[in-house]
């Protein structure tokens, strides 16, 4: 009987988990062309990708946007969680409002931000203009486009991560803080010496989540270019996920796209490993 109860999941797993993974590997070893003929290619697709400037540009874009988005986001989420952990009125309402971005649709939000970042009439340029900054073409230039997309990601996820951090903070025993206060530790010191190290398990969860989400980024940059996976006229904000979709579903080079999918997976593993090592060191001694 137990097997019957878990079987629906594992049947689905075979059909929509194992099968696509195995076949992605299989496809990646073949050369497909538009006429539909296939030819054994060995590791040629991988070799070609590693020599493909477009692929590397997508990798750089993805990693850069991931870093620009994640580093400030983690810091902000931590401080926000710390603030949310205080006593104040309208607690639930405030917690709900910081989660509001999460429940709005990604595409809708990207549309709104794209308008906010419009060159000639966007609100962002108008505000910057008040400080004497000339209008930026957020979509045309590489670094500005990364920043614009990173803010969309951060808007969506900072509140969510803050709530997760908050949950972690509430599991920290209060007597730790009381003991520290008696020893004369300032509140700032308590945050760095108690809160941060005790949050490590939560942080691993949040950082892994952000790594997977950030390195597979697709919706925001695609919508930023009106639903086109080119990622701008020069591919300046094309991510690896967009590159895969372009190769697979516009160029119909299935083998190439499949190989790129495996390299993306490798990138995620590397990213997860680096983050894991980094988080392990946070807070130093425990």
């Amino acid at each position: 009987m137990p097997y019957a109860l878990v079987s629906p999941y594992f049947i689905l797993f075979a059909a929509f988990g194992l099968f696509p993974l195995a076949f992605t590997l299989y496809y990646s070893l073949y050369d497909y062309d538009l006429a539909g003929t296939t030819e054994w290619a060995g590791l040629d697709n991988y070799a070609a990708l590693l020599a493909d400037d477009d692929f590397w540009r997508a990798v750089v874009n993805t990693v850069a946007m991931f870093l620009i988005a994640t580093v400030p986001q983690m810091l902000l989420a931590l401080f926000l969680a710390n603030a949310l952990n205080k006593r104040f009125r309208f607690r639930l309402a405030i917690r709900m409002s910081v989660l509001l971005p999460l429940v709005t649709s990604v595409v809708a939000v990207a549309v709104v931000f794209t308008q906010l970042y419009a060159r000639d009439w966007g609100l962002v340029n108008w505000i910057l203009g008040a400080f004497g900054v000339e209008n930026t073409n957020w979509r045309a230039e590489r670094v500005p486009s990364w920043i614009a997309i990173a803010t969309m990601v951060d808007w969506r996820w900072t509140g969510y991560n803050a709530i997760i951090f908050l949950a972690g903070m509430q599991t920290i025993p209060r007597d730790l803080y009381e003991a520290a206060a008696i020893d004369g530790a300032s509140r700032r010191r308590q945050f760095w010496q108690i809160t941060l190290p005790m949050l490590r398990p939560t942080m691993i969860f949040v950082v892994l989540n952000s790594t997977i989400g950030g390195l597979t980024l697709f919706s925001e940059p695609t919508t930023f270019y009106n639903g086109n996976v080119d990622g701008g006229s020069q591919g300046q904000f094309q991510t690896v996920a967009m590159f895969i979709v372009k190769q697979g579903f516009r160029e119909f080079d299935y083998g190439y796209a499949a190989a790129a999918a495996w390299l993306l997976f490798l990138l995620i593993l590397i990213g997860a490993a680096i983050n894991f090592l980094f988080v392990r060191r946070i807070g130093g001694t425990k």
Binding site: F13, Y27, I244
Partner: peptide, 18 residues
């Protein structure tokens, strides 16, 4: 383990062919 693999992005080509 399946939670850690971004299947939607990874397996997109075979899923589409299917």
């Amino acid at each position: 383990l399946t939670m850690a693999v971004p299947l939607q992005q990874m397996g997109v080509v075979p899923l589409y062919r299917l």
